[in-house]
Design a binder for these strands. Structure first.
Length: 227
DNA sequence: AAAGGAGTCAACCGCCTATTA
DNA sequence: GTAATAGGCGGTTGACTCCTT
């Protein structure tokens, strides 16, 4: 079967959004709510593809979006979550209120990858997620009743690994690890030693390496990552 | 001051999955 | 059961800005 294009590109505007377009989109969504992205541009009077409208709303116009100034805590959380989830940017973004998947993805590619590489850390501690396991939540909006009954999304995690507090403390930021300014490595100046210590930071072994039997039970991601 | 390189990030592309007809 | 459609996602691109020479 042929895939129809998401929209006819003839006559549609591309590139950066003007403030007028932003206003039109935001006003329309405030009045009618999100969704119906295909028909939205026409009804809102925008010469844009529906996907483009959705992206603009999700990454820029949506209320509550924080922009820039990713804090050390957030950075730390991104690295931890990436270690667990890999390039599942939308999932990672879901754990960082006000942050978008696009922003996190950009931040990872421009800042964190470099930082990790500099520190000699393999930024891909997990295996690529098998395509089969790419699951999504049902698109139907749950009712209030459903939300009470619905099971939280479970993520299979291996058993937690105890890492000696001499390697790093819970309060130690990722930055301090990468920069090597830990008290334990201070002054040692031994690159190999530092590398080993930092490698221990990777919070869990590869997430999807384990089959169901060897998994050792399911854990909620909340148990591993502080909200 | 100008040119070129590097860094950043908004937006696009194409694929995948879920839903609907 | 199958095809079409819609929404969502991750990867990539390219325009813009900043920095260095």
């Amino acid at each position: 079967m042929g895939r129809s294009p998401c929209c006819s590109k003839v006559g549609l505007k591309r590139g950066p959004w003007s403030t007028k377009e932003d206003t039109l989109l935001a006003n329309y969504i405030h009045q009618h709510g999100e969704g119906q992205w295909r028909s939205l541009p026409k009804q809102a009077g925008l010469l844009r593809c529906g996907k483009s409208c959705r992206l603009r709303w999700m990454n820029y116009l949506r209320p509550g979006i924080k922009r820039g100034n990713i804090s050390e805590d957030e950075e730390d959380l991104i690295v931890r979550l990436h270690g667990l989830l890999g390039n599942r940017w939308s999932l990672i973004a879901g754990r960082l209120p006000g942050r978008t998947d696009n922003e996190i993805k950009n931040y990872w590619n421009t800042h964190l990858l470099k930082k990790l590489n500099t520190a000699g850390i393999n930024p891909i501690p997990h295996k690529t997620l098998p395509k089969k396991q790419r699951t999504k939540a049902p698109r139907v909006k749950p009712t209030a009743d459903d939300q009470q009954q619905v099971n939280p999304i479970k993520v299979y995690l291996p058993k937690p690994i105890r890492v000696s507090s001499s390697v790093f403390s819970r309060t130690q930021s990722y930055d301090s690890l990468v920069s090597g300014s830990t008290s334990s490595s201070e002054g040692s100046g031994e690159p190999a030693e530092k590398l080993t210590e930092v490698a221990s930071y990777v919070p869990c072994p590869p997430l999807f390496e384990l089959d169901d039997e060897s998994c050792g039970g399911d854990f909620l991601i909340e148990e591993c990552i502080p909200a």
